[in-house]
């Protein structure tokens, strides 16, 4: 390659390198905002400081879902198979909310009771796509 082109190549590489470094630093700086949720183990090991709303995510424990008979109040336990915390919520749940399925709850964490007073429940689904008939056949 000719000399002046080589020089420009170094310039291009320099720009890309510097901006890559800058992006990494920015993502480190906002790491806590980038991680969408705490797992129950995180909440036990390193409970969040302050009175801010947090997100907690995990699987809904089988058999833990309790609905109130006269209101929309719901109570269930989320677990990451090591630790688990209780979640209270009032409202309508998303369609994909099921026991043993992933869920992300936003709300205020109660450190003394290890529970979360949620104001938003989001369902998390995985990357597996299987036809309904195949799944039925597999379960038989």
């Amino acid at each position: 390659m000719k000399q002046h082109r080589l020089k420009r190549l170094y310039g291009v590489l320099f720009i890309v390198f510097c901006s890559a470094l800058a992006f990494v630093l920015v993502y480190f700086a906002i790491r806590d905002n980038v991680n969408l949720f705490y797992s129950p183990s995180d909440l036990f090991e390193n409970p969040p400081q302050g009175r801010n709303a947090i997100r907690a995510g995990g699987l809904v424990k089988i058999g833990s879902l309790r609905r109130s008979t006269d209101s929309l109040e719901i109570e269930f336990i989320i677990t990451d198979l090591k630790k688990s915390i209780a979640v209270n919520y009032t409202g309508i749940l998303p369609d994909l909310f099921k026991e043993n399925a992933g869920v992300v709850a936003t709300g205020y964490f109660n450190k003394s009771k290890m529970s979360l007073d949620a104001y938003q429940i989001l369902a998390k689904h995985d990357e597996n796509y299987v036809p309904k008939e195949v799944k039925k056949a597999l379960e038989k």
Partner: peptide, 16 residues
């Protein structure tokens, strides 16, 4: 530390 990281990011980004 996040402010310091952001300051560093601005410096590195603007330098070239």
């Amino acid at each position: 530390s996040s402010n310091i990281l952001l300051l560093t990011a601005i410096l590195v980004f603007l330098l070239p």
